[in-house]
């Protein structure tokens, strides 16, 4: 009798657990979930992104001050961190990744919001930009990284780094001190001065520091910045792009990761 009751309770608990796991799957967007998304947004996001999503929250100006970055304007800006082609909108999963990881230096990781809450916020912030209704962003496919880099591959990567003028912005040693960067020529989509990323300091890389992250950044480019997409240049030559990735990683201690 007693054991039976325990069993019953155990089933209840397990069912409950399953139900709560199921909730973590991306919920459908409806009026209730948008309302919930708005509530979360106004408590967590609006301080920088603004109550209207225009990147003009009361704390937003101080992040970059007179320089890049400003908080994203969800109503009209493009997006830097994507798995989609240059100029395309991000997928929902891309937005989820950014919210979960944060952006080093400028945006905290919101892992403390549960998965469901993150999806609700994503649905709410997308509602400001009608382009999300018209364009259906399609993620590019990214291959798995080949096995460990060889010295020759890294050497080839260095040649590509020169050939593709990476050093014009990122500098000969990858320290973000290329001639265009030091001359102050680089501007973001709001015409604010922007720095070239220091490739020797992976902890500050905004789009992630893994080999796949670098591969993705080089493929998609960072919209709203001078960083272009190299997808066209490396189409059908993925192994060359991996060599460039490994060379960039060799500038810091990231090559093993």
């Amino acid at each position: 009798m007693h054991a039976k009751r325990l069993k019953y309770i155990a089933i209840l608990i397990i069912t409950g657990l399953c139900a709560s796991t199921a909730q973590a799957v991306k919920p459908t967007t409806n009026r209730d979930s948008l309302r919930e998304g708005r509530r979360i947004y106004e408590q967590a996001c609006a301080w920088c992104h603004g109550t209207g999503g225009e990147g003009d929250g009361p704390a937003g100006w101080f992040i970059g001050r007179y320089s890049s970055p400003r908080p994203r304007n969800f109503a009209q800006d493009g997006y830097k961190f994507r798995s989609t082609g240059s100029g395309d909108l991000p997928t929902d999963q891309d937005l989820f990744t950014t919210i979960t990881r944060g952006i080093p230096g400028v945006m905290p990781a919101y892992r403390a919001l549960n998965e469901r809450e993150r999806w609700q916020v994503i649905a709410y912030l997308k509602s400001w930009n009608p382009a999300f209704e018209e364009e259906k962003p399609v993620p590019l496919t990214f291959p798995q990284a080949p096995a460990a880099p060889t010295e020759a591959a890294i050497h080839n990567g260095r040649n590509l780094y020169v050939k593709y003028d990476c050093r014009v912005c990122h500098g000969d040693n990858g320290e973000g001190d290329g001639p265009e960067a030091t001359a102050g020529h680089l501007r973001d989509g709001n015409n604010l001065p922007i720095r070239a990323t220091n490739l020797t300091d992976p902890s500050a890389w905004k789009n992630g520091a893994s080999a796949l992250d670098l591969f993705r950044t080089l493929t998609t480019g960072l919209d709203g910045t001078p960083m272009p997409s190299y997808a066209n240049e490396f189409a059908g030559r993925e192994e060359a792009l991996w060599e460039l990735v490994w060379y960039i990683q060799s500038l810091s201690d990231q090559q093993r990761k």
Binding site: F62, R65, G102, G105, M107, P108
Partner: peptide, 11 residues
Amino acid sequence: YTLNCTACHTA
């Protein structure tokens, strides 16, 4: 939180 000071501070 891997943030710059200016995420929370004006100065």
